[in-house]
Amino acid sequence: MLWLLAHDRLRVLGHGDVTREVSGLYGHWYGVLTHGAFPVHDPLWQYPPGAGPVLLSPALLPGLSYLQGFVALTLAADAVIALALTRAGTREGRTLLGAAFWICGLPLLLHVPLARYDVQVTALAVLSLLLSTRSTRACGAFAALGALVKVWPVLVLTGLPKGRAARSAWTGAAVTGTTVLALLVTLFDHPFAFLRGQGARGVQIESFGGTLLALARHAGWPGKVRYRYGALEYTGPYVSTVAHVSLALTAVALGLVLLWRARARRWGEATPYDAALAAVLLFTVTSRVISPQYLIWLLGLAAVCLTSRHTTQRPVAALLLAATAVTAVVYPVLYDEVTAATWTGCALMVVRNGLLAAAAVLSCTRVWRSTVTPPLPRASRGAQALTPAAPAGAHGLLH
């Protein structure tokens, strides 16, 4: 991954220049943040106030350029995740499959993870989930820190058992979140500037809605692609409608999570992990924006699931590995094809988003069945076990 990062402009990598975001955009924001303010007038600033300390963190490594320091800290976060998963996997009744999944799965995204700060955010979410069996207060604290950096880690709390465990985690999250947010408000001006641009975001070309609009271009739709709010988005007729539908589907996803919380009756060892992955998958597939780095989140959560021998998410993890591999082809390798909405680009997006949709449906179905659907009565299971197998010659008659 480091070698690819150093040779980012190779033709086989699509001339992606993925380091431009760190060297240019992050570096620019670093300069603004060092003066004690968030980028209030920058429409590209889309992140909660907790992102500020993350973007300032390369200053902790003197003697390195901003890009070098950022990559070094990203690798450190990657190592923290790998070590945490390894330690969890060596406990009694656990497995090292989660650590292996993370270590082998992340490089499928090529060098993109080293040039985005999503590995750091994923580390907070992974630590939060792994701590849920030891200290629910610490679980909530890490989830709150992650939410202050990029919102989605708060979803890892959705799968905690009802009662004291959930109350303790949410209390820890509230106390930590309030304390850190108050500190950031004290140290920086305009901490909530990011809220101004959220409602105006459109439909990114890699989202489900973007795939629909890409296919519509082949049917004569006159929309164009523009760089807005830090991503390539579609502009033109019906784009706002697609964006509003995406927001409505996100609201439906929230309703499904709440419905599951209300109906769930059985919690196993892996339920908090499985439910967290299902929730983040739901919010990912309904989003107006599905950037390549979103797969980092899903890989990290799937890895946590795989540390448990009782997880229901093994086939989901396999689908996510496939989606991750296709995502690397989408960006940076053939991103020009996706941007131009060629048939090749459309096919790639249909396959990638199809895999994500299948993973989301399968994940939610398996979590629902394992926690809500009543188990088969013992008598029925015994009757099924005692039913004699049909003779080989009768197989055709049965069909």
Rank of each mutant, 00 (worst) to 15 (best):
L5V: 10
H7C: 13
R9C: 12
G14T: 06
G16N: 04
D42H: 07
Y47N: 03
Y47V: 02
P48D: 06
P49A: 12
G50E: 03
G50W: 01
S57R: 05
S65T: 13
A72F: 03
A72E: 00
L73S: 03
T90V: 09
R91Q: 14
A100Q: 11
C104Y: 08
G105E: 03
L110I: 08
H111W: 10
Y117W: 13
D118I: 05
D118F: 07
V121I: 13
V126N: 09
S132E: 03
R137S: 11
F142K: 01
K162F: 07
R164Y: 06
R164C: 06
S168D: 15
A169P: 03
G172K: 06
G172C: 09
A174I: 06
T178R: 04
A182P: 07
L184C: 07
F194N: 03
L195N: 13
R196S: 15
Q198F: 11
S207H: 11
G210Y: 01
R217V: 10
G220F: 04
R226S: 12
Y238L: 15
A243K: 07
H244Q: 15
V245T: 14
L247T: 12
T250W: 08
T250N: 12
A262K: 11
G268A: 09
D274V: 00
V280A: 00
L282T: 01
L282W: 03
P292N: 09
Q293I: 03
I296Q: 03
G300T: 02
L301D: 00
H310W: 13
T312A: 15
P315T: 05
L319R: 01
A322C: 11
V333M: 10
G345M: 08
A347V: 12
M349E: 15
V350M: 09
A357P: 03
V361R: 05
C364N: 07
W368D: 05
V372A: 13
P377D: 05
A379D: 13
A379M: 04
Q384Y: 07
T387Q: 08
G393E: 08
G396Q: 07
